[in-house]
């Protein structure tokens, strides 16, 4: 099979010496549990993500993909290895990163506008600036009329939009997304995927996206990193051979089907070597 490297325009034009996200030999094990049952969650993960790329982490449960994302965010420290975001340590690079969680994780006691403005408020941004940015973000995600609502009044899809608006309000360069649309129905998920791509074209983000949906991974990514579990490790890195910009109609094309079939196959292989006893060998 001929594989051609396809990148977004932005990725090609802005490629530089320092990767946006760089993982060098990352391993992670948690301290809990006794020594016999303690197994590494992640083992020797090395990956470089260039500016403007959308890289998805795809793998069976237990492959540590969410843990890996939290290590990139500086929320968890690796047990071994090094992480750099734009050449510096993640904890010092949080200004340029936003994390989007699987659930909307909104604060129920705050209105939609107050939720969107949370980060600016914590960073003591001036009030007029805050109001202006919040309004702009709500417009961006199509919720300009919902600013005064409380989260409980919103549907799941709307909550997720608020969560996205909150992540974008302080203009991140890097988005870390942890199965953000897993709880949504397919129509909402597809629509939000398209919006992420539209915004990505405008804002030139670098995106690290965790998912367990093959279709989502293929549709969104420049590259799909297929992980195996027990311990979590990279089984395969697949460059998605689909043109940019990605349109919704593309999901029906034979090329998309072929890519999805290929990634499904890689995922099946990765799952096959993901034995809980940890004795699986890389194929």
């Amino acid at each position: 099979m001929v594989r051609k490297v396809v990148e977004s325009d932005s990725a090609r034009s802005q490629r530089s010496a320092i990767p946006e996200i760089e993982l060098k030999g990352i391993s992670k094990q948690f301290d809990s549990g006794n020594a016999n049952t303690r197994r590494p969650v992640l083992q020797d993960i090395s990956l470089a993500v260039e500016r403007g790329e959308i890289v998805t982490l795809l793998g069976p449960s237990g492959c540590g993909k969410s843990t890996l994302l939290r290590i990139v965010a500086g929320l968890l420290a690796p047990s071994a290895g090094e992480v750099f975001v734009n050449g510096i340590l993640p904890v010092n690079a949080r200004q340029m990163m936003s994390f989007i969680f699987q659930d909307a994780t909104l604060l129920p006691w705050r209105t939609v506008a107050q939720n969107v403005g949370l980060g600016l408020e914590l960073e003591h941004a001036a009030r007029p600036l805050r109001a202006e940015r919040i309004a702009a973000m709500l417009r961006l995600v199509g919720l300009e009329d919902a600013g005064k609502s409380y989260p409980r009044q919103l549907s799941g899809g709307m909550k997720m939009r608020v969560s996205i608006a909150r992540a974008l309000v302080h203009r991140p360069r890097i988005l870390l997304m942890d199965e953000p649309f897993a709880a949504l129905d397919e129509i909402n998920r597809d629509r939000l995927n398209e919006e992420v791509l539209r915004l990505h074209r405008e804002q030139n983000w670098t995106v690290l996206f965790v998912t367990h949906s093959v279709a989502e991974a293929v549709f969104l990514s420049t590259r799909v990193v297929v992980l195996a579990a027990h311990p979590g490790r990279i089984a395969h890195i697949h460059e998605v051979n689909l043109p940019w910009p990605r349109e919704s109609a593309m999901r029906l094309s034979p090329a998309f089907d072929a890519e999805a079939a290929r990634v499904s196959h890689l995922l099946r292989e990765a799952t096959a070597i993901s034995r809980p006893d940890g004795e699986g060998a890389l194929g």
Binding site: R70, A73, L75, R94, Q95, M97, S98, F99, F101, Q102, D103, T105, L107, W109, L118, G119, E121, L122, E123
Partner: peptide, 27 residues
């Protein structure tokens, strides 16, 4: 308080006082 909410505050470099009064107390 749900761990992800604490993580959210940490992503904004929130101080312990901010976590306590803007997250834990209202929660």
């Amino acid at each position: 308080v749900e761990e992800n909410l604490v993580h959210l505050f940490h992503m904004h470099n929130a101080t312990p006082a901010q976590v306590l009064f803007k997250l834990r107390l209202p929660h």
